[in-house]
Design a protein around this nucleic acid. Structure first.
Lengths: 191, 191
DNA sequence: TACATAAGGTACTTGGTGTACCTTATTTTC
DNA sequence: GAAAATAAGGTACACCAAGTACCTTATGTA
């Protein structure tokens, strides 16, 4: 029996996600995905306009685990935990895939923004929530409740990966980002 | 007469730089560079192991203009000027090229770090100098004399380009980065 | 049962990287 | 000044991947 519609689409997506997980974005070729899904390139191109679009869809497939927002009652602890989570993600194979996608998409802004919203590490809501609670406790200044300020830590972290090409950021760097940059920037007291 | 050695090398580099400037990194193909330099691919491959290496060399060729360090006596003015310079660079065709290189090099860390050192926008020395002067004037806190802290502004700026895929960052964003993030982080007074 | 829709199969065009191999010009060395 | 070494030119090609064309075949739907 011949698969069609959603069934086939799922099979293709699963195959693409597997390829991504195994070989990263550079290894995601249409031929291999087609072969792995037991179909052919036409079926793929009827659904996604090009490789990049399939890559994003597959990456999304890979990322259904949602991040939890820590709430320990201490700003520094919350921030450290969240940043370490992001680092765990970025240094995992998935992070490598994300960077591969980010890299290849710099010419396609529409796809980039779509990816941006699904980026497991950069959701500003996450950071704003942490800060909102800290403000209520008097640990953070209210002016910090600003997406650009709130996400500074994770932006610096991602910067390590993107501009240095490292595959893993040491925990000392995480602590440095938090203690030298983030806390001085958002916290209310201590100076 | 047949060119060889440094003369030929220069010609290739110039051709590559021209291609980069005209068509960006994706448009930099070995065939076209060879043709433009009036030689052939062999001559190129004898000098650079692959396209990425040639790309970096060509980019470097393109960037001999050194950045000047402003010294107006006011921290905010110095920072704004420097960041606007970086933005001018990043939103120019050269910035596009830089991003294209950054993108394609995420798998080759050695090349990436080489590029990193030559990045016209991220030299931490530049920022440290600005801050050192500001500390002497009492406008910045001494703890800010730390590469990670000092370069926060330009990292955030580059982040706009890399993760949003925009081709130009508005001046309001620059001002926001400076006033909402950078100055609160480094300045000594005002809170 | 007829028709429309969607999948399979296959071959191909295009474009780019990197390599092989041979010929030819220019230095260097004896 | 000739011989040998070095480096450039020329051409063709293997290889790979994206994307397209076109036809055949299966599966729903009216």
């Amino acid at each position: 029996m011949r698969r069609r519609g959603a069934v086939l689409e799922d099979a293709i997506l699963r195959a693409a996600a597997d390829e991504l997980a195994e070989s990263g974005y550079p290894g995601l070729t249409m031929d291999r995905v087609a072969k792995r899904a037991g179909t052919n390139k036409n079926a793929i191109y009827r659904r996604w306009p090009n490789r990049a679009a399939l890559g994003i869809a597959a990456y999304r497939q890979l990322m259904q685990d949602r991040t939890v927002i820590p709430d320990t009652g201490d700003l520094r602890t919350d921030v450290l935990e969240t940043l370490r989570n992001a680092n765990r993600h970025l240094s995992s194979p998935n992070g490598d895939i994300l960077r591969g996608l980010l890299a290849s998409l710099h010419t396609e802004p529409e796809l980039l923004t779509e990816l941006h919203e699904r980026m497991a590490d950069g959701g500003s809501e996450l950071w704003l929530t942490i800060l909102r609670r800290a403000v209520e406790r008097g640990q953070a200044r209210p002016e910090a409740l600003n997406p650009r300020v709130a996400t500074v830590a994770v932006v610096l972290l991602r910067n390590e990966y993107v501009t240095r090409g490292v595959t893993e950021v040491a925990d000392e760097v995480i602590v440095e980002i938090v203690d030298d940059v983030y806390l001085p920037l958002v916290s209310s007291s201590t100076r």
